[in-house]
Design a binder for these strands. Sequence first.
DNA 1: GCTTACGCTTACGTTCACGTCAAGTGATTG
DNA 2: CAATCACTTGACGTGAACGTAAGCGTAAGC
Lengths: 139, 139
Amino acid sequence: MKQSLSLDAHGVMTIGQMCEAFDVTPRTLRFYEQRNLIAPIREGQRRLFTARDRARLKLILRGKRFGFSLDDIQELLELYDPQDGQRRQLAATLERAVERLAAMQAQRLELDAAIDELKGQIGLVERMLADRGRAEAAE
Amino acid sequence: MKQSLSLDAHGVMTIGQMCEAFDVTPRTLRFYEQRNLIAPIREGQRRLFTARDRARLKLILRGKRFGFSLDDIQELLELYDPQDGQRRQLAATLERAVERLAAMQAQRLELDAAIDELKGQIGLVERMLADRGRAEAAE
DNA sequence: GCTTACGCTTACGTTCACGTCAAGTGATTG
DNA sequence: CAATCACTTGACGTGAACGTAAGCGTAAGC
């Protein structure tokens, strides 16, 4: 039973494989590494991207689609692997996560409203087209 | 019966009033005008923003929160006032609107997934804190 | 009549998120 | 062995979305 994705025995991927899999450029991945958004391991000079990197990249790209900045995403990522054992840190992380959640739920409401509006608008244009059709047929 | 918003008898607002109402800078409004996203009327040199400008600005700001570029938003705005009588144009507008709608519905699905994930993550961190609490209590 | 507030244009500066060379390093391949 | 990949590290360039500073106009209020 083979994997469908191209990854070696240890589940790591090269930069090229990553680029293909996620449709990004090498520059983007190096940039994200420099920003400490991902942390591929090094085999000599070369980067090897682990499952953790892939999971984080997914979150990064999704965050971008929601209009978050890389700074925002940085924070978001910290919510997804609490790397510290400090209780104080954990509590702070939790608090920010709850805030994020509220923000995302608000965004969801807005998005729903926007969708409804657009639907209404589409209905309007459709009726305009229909009227136009009948007017032309009446000539 | 007076208006709560500060606008004159004709329902127009100055740039300063707009900035206060929408929490943007004058520069932003002038920039949007230059990009033809809004079209305030002129009283001499000064700009006067109409209800139409305000409606469009709302859409602009909402679009930005969803991660749309100003170019995207430009297109979106055209969906909301079909200014041309050309049937061909209307049909094209309609088509783009339907595409947008699909995109926004997809984004909605993604957002829901993201919200669920974050909720799960919050639950995890909460349990970590609870365990930590019990561990400390056991000492 | 002078200041203060508000607004205008022009134009250069800045930040973010990369794009785009340039020059070099191994590893395979004909 | 030369060439070709795939990858590396700088370093400078770029487009989008404004920020910011300079210099000017005008109307209100003291």
